[in-house]
Design a protein around this nucleic acid. Sequence first.
RNA 1: UGGGGCGUCGACAAGCGGCAAGUCAGCAGAUUUUGGAUCUGCCAUACCCAGGUUCGAAUCCUGGCGCCCCAGCCA
Length: 563
Amino acid sequence: MRDHVPSSTNFIKDIVLNDIKTNKYNGKVITRFPPEPNGYLHIGHAKSICLNFGLAEEFNGKCNLRFDDTNPSKEEQEYVDAIIEDVKWLGYDWGDKIYYASDYFEQLYEWAIQLIKDGKAYVCDLSPDEIRQYRGTLTEPGKESPYRNRSVEENLDLLERMKNGEFAEGSRVLRAKIDMSSGNINMRDPVMYRIRNEAHQRTGDKWCIYPMYDWAHGLSDSIEGITHSICTMEYEDHRPLYDWFIEQLNVYHPQQIEFARLNLSHTVLSKRKLLRLVNEKNVESWDDPRMPTLAGMRRRGYTPESIRDFAERIGVGKKESLVDIALLEHCVRKDLNKKAQRVMAVLRPLKVVIVNYPENKVEYLEAINNPEDSSMGIRDVPFSRVIYIEKDDFMEEPLKKFYRLTVGREVRLRYAYYIKCVEVIKDDYGNVIELHCTYDPETRGGWSPDGRQVKSTLHWVSASHSFNAEVRLYNHLFAKENPDETEDGNDFIDYINSNSIEILKNCCIEPSLKQAKAGERYQFERIGYFCVDSKDSNEGSPVFNRIVTLKDEWLKVLKSEKS
RNA sequence: UGGGGCGUCGACAAGCGGCAAGUCAGCAGAUUUUGGAUCUGCCAUACCCAGGUUCGAAUCCUGGCGCCCCAGCCA
């Protein structure tokens, strides 16, 4: 294969390889994928999933799926379920156990007590606003809290009472005592626990305090014996804190490694923005086929293999980048070219009467299911006097490079016959509504015994045998290459592609697809790859989602004509 | 003179002192019963800039410049 990518390397793999060589963790590799269940997973998460699970696979280690469920006000079971389904769908296996940060609440609490006893944590009564003021700014150091030097006893008492729900939300927090003048703002006495009088989806109302990310994350890694804790670049500033907690407690020390998150052209990849698209009804739902969520891509028809291939090809680095969505599209075309059965479907039908074909005759013509894979066999497609072809495949006044059907020109109907257009029928407004053609009976199957060539091959369906179906044509969700980059007061929402979905109601599909099942993928010849929608299809009436178009040379000709 | 990170083709990305990989996109051609697929060729005398070290620098050093992240009781 021309574009075969040799198993690639990256700086994280180099680190892992080196750690194995030096026996740093007794040769073990244990990673983790730690989503917060407050939204759906997207293609950016897929990069992380593939990295973490991929490393574990490659080095005979394991990767824990761990829910970072430390903030009950934002998290929901719906998201937990969706995330589990998505990771599974991508093809990864986390063994027999799912991990939850909330399983460590007890241990974390004990460690907090230990830090208090060591004089390294204190209960602070400053209000959120005061804490912000005391924190200082990026260029000025902070001030120490007046509560910083409370006695161990008082701290212990206060923390226990915070835990038991004796205080109002926001009235107190537990803070690490580090350095209010640090250049790294994360080290200016960061909050470890905040009061939330709120039930947690797993621990119920047992806790009235919940740990912050920095307090919970590294220690969760430590508890699980993670070797390489891989996260995105924005956590680089948090690494000193990650290390600090672990060092103060003198527990097993995993290493945090940061990489650059994925940005994809013509879409957005932030949970916040995706949530807005859903809430503001710019898309149907989290699994709208235009969404870059794994649920949306699955419904659109993307294969897990193509996403994994994509994740491999984009590489892993520390540089911020914007990957061209064309690469993702290439990956799914490449996969589906090998796998998808070819069928004929006419999206915008134009009636064609083959005037010299017998009125009631029906023939079944042999069609190849996949020229890339002969094991997929053949099928018979019905042919008769009245057929439909694509409107775009006829031009009364053809452009120079148009070599499809026009008056007087002979073309091939795929797997059927050569036909020649002899007459154009129009309505009162001059629109072409029907074509009369003749066929050459000698060309059955699409070959001419005299060897004469035609310039093009068209797909078609028999009018009386095909069935009608709804087909949804999806395009990029955003017209702008980088919708995150807004100018003059615009919002990313303003860049939504008004043409991101086009619904075609009366497409004519070859009969073999009548019973197509949800999730099945097909190539509509000469058009693109399509997937049977899993939500809106019914038994005997499938709805099709366009996954991606086929490459289209003719479209390029048209574009260059215009310019 | 706050802290941290990053600059290699239009987009990704290898490269770790010895001839600037590969992929996507683009362009040209071959081939084709999908204007698909496939195949071939072209596409960075040059790595943000300027100095320096060296026989030799994208790689090492120094100094600039540019871009990104951080002031949630979010993760």
